[in-house]
Every structure is written in structure tokens, then in C-alpha cells.
Simulated scan of single mutants.
Amino acid sequence: MSTQGHAAKPSTPEIDSSLLITVSGPPGCGATTLCERLSEAMDCPYVSGGDIFRELAEDGELSLHQQTAEADASDDIDRALDKRLQSIAEKWGASGKPFILESRLAGWLAGENADLRLWLDAPDEVRVDRVEDREETEAEMRVREVSEAGRYEKYYDIDVEDREFYDLNINTARWSKEGVFQIVKTAIEQYDTEADEGAYETPAVDI
């Protein structure tokens, strides 16, 4: 399990919450930055599906592009990854402790275990600028997005463009990193189970 927590965590959580939060979005949307900030503020771990995917690539001595090609050729990689993420969500959902799950399908895979589902996005040119210093090229990023979307629809009948059930949709190009964090922080702190009239239903994902 790839559990992140790069910054020193506060002795007293900045955000007092026991919510299981999912964060999703395309490459360069700012999900990693937000998750690291939330993990520190909530004093809780987070798991990144992207990190696990990269670890699987490294274990097989493959580049990210090669790993994507392997995933295109067989459903074994995707299903193993998604089953792992689904299991992690079930475990933390039953724990009653705060937790953050990040992946393109995190909101779907967590299902009813998720308390708050976030979708982050930004215009293409902004996302491309953000991933320039990564291993992945712009062309590879675009190929991966299309490839993943096709596989999700083929394997699980999931349309990643369907964002109806997300509780927050944020264009991260409109605010600073801290601004995005503050928006999410407010949403978490203002969440009241007694005032909650119901989340959108999340279709179950059969892996």
C-alpha cells in the first residue's frame, strides 16, 4: 500500500474530522498537492492509486508508458489495482478514522464508504504545464487519459465524465494551492451529519 505523508504532521489536527474523503481528477489537476495538505491537516494517511500503478511498473521494470500499454492489453493490472483500492476503502470506511483515497476512480471504488467525494480539474494547458517536470510527457499524459477512460468503460461500464455524484467539483486553476485547500477545509468543517439530506447514489463497481 502506498501511504503518503511527506510533511511533518501536527500534534493536534488542523481539521478535526473522521471523514473518508476521495479525491479524483485527471493528471495535473492538483490532486497530489491537495492530498498531501489534507493528510497533514487531518493527521491521517492517504493512498494514491497513481503511486501504486507506478510501483507496479517499477516492479516489472517498465516505464509508465509501457505499463499503460500492458494495462491496455490485459485487464489484470487494472483489476488488481482497483480491487486493492476498493479493499483499502472498505477497511478505512469501517475504521471510523479519517482517511484520504486518491485515484481517477476513487469516488466509484469507495462507494458508500466515502463520506465526501471531490473532483478536481483544470484547463488542459494548465494541467500540461503542471506535469512538465514529471517523467510523463504531454503526449503520454493525453494517451493515458484516453486509454484509462476507455478501459473503465469497457471493464466497469463507468463514464469518467459522469460527475453527478461528486460533492465538490473544483477548477483548481481559479485558486492558489492554499485557496483550494481552504475551500475543501471549509466543506469538511461545515459538514453536519444531521443536516445532510443525502448523497447521490454511487453505483456499485463489480471488479
Rank of each mutant, 00 (worst) to 15 (best):
D76I: 15
D76Y: 10
D76E: 15
D76F: 13
I77K: 04
I77C: 04
I77G: 00
D78F: 07
D78V: 03
D78P: 00
D78C: 01
D78L: 08
R79Q: 14
R79P: 03
R79G: 03
A80F: 05
A80K: 04
L81R: 04
L81C: 05
L81K: 03
L81P: 05
L81S: 05
D82L: 04
D82A: 03
D82V: 02
D82W: 05
D82T: 01
D82N: 10
K83P: 00
K83W: 10
K83Q: 15
K83E: 15
R84T: 15
R84Q: 10
R84F: 07
R84G: 08
L85C: 03
L85T: 06
L85G: 02
L85V: 10
L85N: 01
Q86W: 09
Q86Y: 09
S87K: 07
S87W: 09
S87M: 09
S87I: 04
I88E: 05
I88T: 08
I88D: 00
I88K: 01
A89Y: 01
A89G: 00
E90F: 06
K91H: 12
K91W: 09
K91G: 03
K91P: 02
K91L: 13
K91F: 14
W92K: 00
W92P: 00
W92S: 00
W92A: 01
W92N: 01
G93T: 12
G93K: 05
G93S: 09
G93P: 06
G93W: 09
G93A: 07
A94P: 02
A94Y: 06
A94D: 15
S95F: 11
S95G: 02
S95N: 06
S95K: 08
G96L: 07
K97R: 13
K97G: 02
K97Q: 14
K97S: 11
P98C: 13
P98A: 15
P98W: 14
P98Y: 13
F99A: 04
F99K: 08
I100K: 02
I100M: 06
L101P: 04
L101D: 06
E102A: 12
E102G: 05
S103A: 15
S103H: 14
R104P: 08
R104T: 14
R104V: 15
R104Q: 13
L105F: 01
A106C: 06
A106W: 01
A106M: 01
A106V: 06
G107I: 07
G107K: 05
W108R: 12
W108G: 01
W108V: 03
L109V: 13
L109G: 03
L109R: 07
L109T: 11
L109D: 07
L109W: 10
